[in-house]
Amino acid sequence: MTFLTNIHRLLRVLLWQPQSAIGTLLVAFFFFLALFGGQLAPYPNANDQSHDARVSPTLDIGSLQLGAHPFGTDRLGRDVYSRVILGANSIFRIAGLGTVISVVLGSALGMAMGYRGDWLDELLGRVIDALLAIPALLLALVMVGIIRNLDFQINSWQAALADEVTLLVIAILYIPVVARVARSAALDIKTREFVAAAEIRGESSAFIIFREILPSAIPALVVEASLRFSYAIFLVASLGFLGFGAPPPSPDWGLMVNENRGGFYRLTPWALEFPALAIALLVIGVNLMSDGIRRAVQKGGA
């Protein structure tokens, strides 16, 4: 019943089913890279161009030998293996933080809306519905475009924000989505009688929202958070690929795929294939895991 036993139970259920176990292990693997990429990468400077350019991958799967450049080097002589490892950090940081921010703020907003259920809720609900009608990628591109084109003074806080534009976009994009889920959960939970019991005790709205309603909404929010995270990963990669994400020369996977397209692909196919493979594996892993979380939570009936 406590939070820890819930996590424990969730993990057990996740690892029990083969699909979600694979997903969870994949995500865990990339998360490990994100944390310790700096130590693991043979060349921790992502823009280290000191190698021969266009070296083919030295990885030998049969003998498990890595060689000097397991994934080869790109046309500028950067070690693709190191760059893929280093790239894990940014995608996790941006998608993860963006998800956390959107889930925290979206939940608070949605819960408050659902609990109050008055004209403000009505109004915000309409705004949210309108926002959600616009395709996410389009909205993201517009927002990035606007923020990028603002004139900021160097070192001002606005400039710092602009550097984190992808993170910001994810947070803003997903707040309404999460809010809608939280709102409908709150609408349901607030009709339960323990909420009425809290009201006739004279509890404050904040107490009722966060202490009475929120715990029962957490299963739904956990499912939504995992879903948001998997979309966020995909969105970060897409934005990077479209050139709206991290600027060169950062080791962003999407950006790496973009930079090695077209004519370059014929020269150094590995410089595109390995980051693309990383994206694919992570997206698959996150999806399998969030699917498993959904099933685990629904089965637990919590």
């Binding site: 019943m1 339960r192 009688e193 323990f194 019991a197 006739i200 005790r201 715990p215 029962s216």
Partner: peptide, 18 residues
Amino acid sequence: LSQVQMVFQNPQNSLNPY
């Protein structure tokens, strides 16, 4: 508030499960 209290119908819902 303390003078007026209530017992609800549905025992399933009247206690916070957490």
